[in-house]
């Protein structure tokens, strides 16, 4: 493939939205009440909309006739490049919110930079996404404050979720070969520069929410290179079920 780095770069961005959208999709119909259910589904819909734009572009770059569905549903587990954070399960609403917030804070900062990309397709997608993700971040950070500064029970639950998911945050700022190549070409975002601002902001919100900022220095990584947690296999089993069971059909 001529533009392999660009292709892989796009997949790295898109897979995060794909897997997180899939996780939120599991919740549709099972939220703590109707209003919150509808809100979470809206976020899921935004993410899948983004996924389609990215994969349609990736398909064009690959130029081998693969569709958005082929790219999103017909790769092997180790070919998915999402960060470990987004594949973590909906253990309870606190985990859903913590995962969303820890990702949204990164996602928003990332998209703001991607808007400046000289790659016009990427910057156009980023322009659209940044508005959606601003709202996601508002939603999730509001809920972190609500749960943190709510009842003793909610505080305990959200603190536990933040503590458990904290080890997946550092990976957000790791670079793959494709990332480095795209940064070198001036097209991609240098995620290492986002790290400091990210932690400062996350700490600010956690403090407002009367929560402890985890001090752990032990982090997990691997998602960006295709080495995932055990959860991804199950996610893909559902995501790919139809395409794998009934190959080469149109739906």
């Amino acid at each position: 493939m001529k533009n392999e780095n660009l292709y892989n770069y796009i997949l790295g961005i898109a897979d995060n939205s794909l897997i997180l959208g899939q996780r939120l999709g599991e919740l549709c119909g099972h939220g703590p009440n109707l209003e919150t259910d509808i809100a979470c589904t809206n976020i899921s819909l935004d993410l899948f909309g983004q996924v389609r734009s990215y994969f349609q572009y990736a398909g064009k770059i690959a130029g081998d006739g693969r569709s958005e569905d082929d790219i999103s549903m017909l790769r092997k587990e180790h070919e998915y490049k999402n960060v470990l954070l987004v594949e973590q399960p909906n253990t309870n609403f606190a985990y859903t919110i913590a995962r969303q917030f820890l990702f949204d804070a990164y996602h928003l900062a990332f998209l703001r930079e991607l808007q400046k990309s000289p790659d016009l397709t990427l910057s156009a997608i980023a322009n659209k996404c940044v508005k959606e993700v601003s709202y996601h971040e508002r939603f999730s950070s509001d809920w972190v404050r609500r749960l943190g500064d709510g009842t003793d029970e909610s505080r305990e639950k959200i603190q536990e979720a933040i503590n458990d998911l904290w080890m997946y945050t550092d990976e957000l700022f790791h670079q793959t070969e494709a990332d480095k190549a795209m940064v070198a070409e001036g097209i991609g975002v240098d995620v290492t520069t986002l790290k400091e601002g990210y932690y400062a902001y996350v700490k600010e919100v956690l403090e407002e929410a009367t929560l402890e900022v985890p001090e752990s220095k032990y982090f997990q990584k691997g998602g960006k290179h295709g080495v995932h947690t055990e959860h991804l296999g199950y996610i893909l089993a559902e995501l790919q079920y139809m395409q794998r069971t009934y190959p080469n059909m149109e739906w």
Binding site: E35, N42, R138, D142, R146
Partner: peptide, 20 residues
Amino acid sequence: SLHAADAEMALENARDVYTR
């Protein structure tokens, strides 16, 4: 109408429920 714990949440819920 809809349910919300506070005014900010009511605005957000209204956005998600009534302006989809």
